[in-house]
């Protein structure tokens, strides 16, 4: 069940700008709409909406969260097998594989190349078969290792 935008929408366009799937359309200052077929249910639209106009897959109203408080992937390289599933699952393209081996190892490692682009969807952690990724809110001033 895809996300949906209600009449509360003021057409600010924040959701349209952040949607990594390009699933949201709408004119400025007009009610926006989610293309049900294109929606990947990442929830980014709900986290940025200042008008609580986004309903999630369970029809619950999404709550706006300050971007600095969005969870970020924290990769445990001890468990990571470098299989690349997390990188491929990332709809924002912000998690990438390093082109150098990890310290003391031979495999590459996934890291958050563009922290600002992370939408906190958790797809990387959700798909990681090694359970090597935990989504957590960064501590103040902390740069995530992932």
């Amino acid at each position: 069940m895809p996300y949906r935008i209600t009449e509360n929408c003021n057409g600010c366009g924040a959701c349209k700008r952040i949607c990594p799937a390009g699933a949201i359309s709408g004119e400025r200052k007009a009610v926006h709409a989610v293309d049900a077929d294109a929606c990947i249910e990442c929830g980014a639209c709900g986290r940025v909406c200042p008008r609580s106009a986004v309903l999630d897959r369970n029809h619950d109203v999404c709550v706006m969260v300050k971007r600095s408080e969005w969870p970020r992937p924290d990769v445990s390289l001890k468990s990571c097998t470098a299989c690349g599933i997390c990188v491929e699952a990332c709809p924002a393209g912000c998690l990438v594989m390093a082109e150098t081996p990890r310290k003391g190892g031979v495999d590459a490692w996934p890291y958050l190349k563009d922290e600002k682009a992370c939408i906190g969807c958790g797809f990387c952690g959700g798909e990681c078969p090694a359970e090597a990724i935990v989504m957590r809110k960064p501590e103040k001033g902390e740069k995530t290792a992932a």
Partner: peptide, 18 residues
């Protein structure tokens, strides 16, 4: 000559390399 191992999608083995 291997700089880093190369894994295909969903492969925990990584037989490839750059």
């Amino acid at each position: 000559r291997e700089k880093v191992k190369y894994h295909c999608y969903s492969c925990p083995l990584g037989c490839g390399g750059i």
